[in-house]
Amino acid sequence: MDKQAFVELANKVASGLANEQELSLYSNYINQFKGNSEWNTQLMGNEAETKNELLKKINTALIVKAIPFYQKTSFKYLIAACIALVVTAVGAVFYSNNLNSLKNKNKIALENDVAPGGNNAVLTLADGSQVLLNDTDNGKIIEEKGISITKAKDGQLIYRIIDRGANSPSNTEQVIAYNTITTPRGGQYQVLLPDGTQVWLNASSSIKFPTYFSAKQRNVTLTGEAYFEVSKDKTKSFVVNVDEMSVEVLGTHFDVMAYKDEESINTTLLEGSVKVTKNNESRILKPGQQAKVKGGIQVVEAAADVLAWKNGLTSFIDADIRTIMRQVARWYDVEVKYEGDIPRRLFTGEISRKANLSELIKIIKLSNIQLKLEGNVITVMP
């Protein structure tokens, strides 16, 4: 295949217009490229350096991964996204006679960059006092009313009941102490609740919960997004409250996404069973289903990228640019602006949440959407 034919095929793959035969042809060509003994040093640069650079881009910039219980055709498009990244890397080699020049350009581009978010949250205690968890040393943070709060080495916040008797409020007193954990934009956190339930909080989220569960229900209140692995207790259901909606379980794994700037509140079930209720309407989900609450409750098949954030990835499957930019704004704590008439295009890709913003921008630019990063503001242009 000559260079012109390769470029035409690469553009087709990058724009998402390639059919299965063309994807297969391109994949085979890439495999040949990696093992090709005929190397044009003048055109492509030093063989070892160039191949290492390409493999590094492929292995570190984009990580294609399918969530096990969704074995659907969308995985094909994730593969296409990975191939599209290779297009960028290989294309850069074809169009540049000097690999060092390419590295210098990348270095300049990265000077105006934004680092990813990380473990960052604020714990608000019942008396209103606050603890900045990212600044707090590992070990015991506080002990009160029969509860020990500890920060583990991995950053997880752990609640343990040490005395449910004398130091705990009695039912007759009807006094319940609540704590709240809040993540800012660019933050995430994990907490082990007093009943053993594990919660992963996404960026710009909060969860309010009692320091011990004494009622017939284990009630928590959520804003933003969280993934729950609920400790089983047949005597006490676990209820997540979001505005006028609730999700009730006995013990299961599920995700609730309830950001104010999203079109709907989405509850996605991975394991077990949950009941989603809003006003007088209720629906019971099966694993792999998602309830979209917007006015009423609509049950759909869940997309494969729902838990990407919890698994350390920024992922999008057939998502428009505004949907992607909402994720970007929350994780990288940036402002997004739009200029001109942005074309309706769907994107598919995945990248580590540890990657700098510039790496994600490179992937989005594959579909000819122009992004300009200035300070803490991304401008999206046609």
Rank of each mutant, 00 (worst) to 15 (best):
L269I: 10
I176E: 06
L125P: 11
G128E: 09
A177D: 14
P184F: 08
V242T: 07
F209Q: 05
Q370W: 02
R344N: 03
L43H: 10
K3T: 15
N202T: 00
H253Y: 05
N28E: 12
T267R: 10
Y70P: 00
K12H: 01
G196R: 05
K72C: 03
I141S: 10
K354P: 01
V230C: 06
T348A: 05
V131E: 11
R160H: 05
K260P: 00
E20P: 00
E359W: 04
I30W: 14
K103L: 06
F6G: 14
V276N: 01
K294A: 04
D320S: 04
K107E: 12
S27A: 11
N356G: 11
G35N: 10
I79Y: 10
M325H: 08
T73K: 10
G146R: 04
I162D: 12
L269F: 06
N266M: 03
L110W: 06
S237T: 13
V13M: 10
V87P: 09
V199T: 07
L346S: 08
N171F: 14
K372H: 13
N100V: 09
L357N: 06
D135N: 14
S27Y: 11
M245W: 02
L360G: 03
A177M: 11
Q188D: 12
Y77G: 01
G146K: 04
Q370L: 08
V13D: 11
K34Q: 09
E271L: 12
Q298K: 07
Y26V: 10
L9H: 01
G251K: 07
L17C: 09
K286V: 01
Q4D: 15
N19C: 09
I30Y: 14
T323E: 13
Y95T: 15
E339Q: 14
M245E: 00
F238A: 06
K105Q: 14
P194T: 01
I265C: 01
A92E: 15
T60C: 08
N40V: 01
V249P: 09
V175G: 04
T379I: 06
I342K: 00
L17N: 15
E20K: 12
L157E: 05
A126E: 14
N219W: 01
S168T: 12
Q327T: 14
L285E: 09
V220P: 05
N279T: 04
E263S: 06
E229S: 12
E22P: 15
A302G: 07
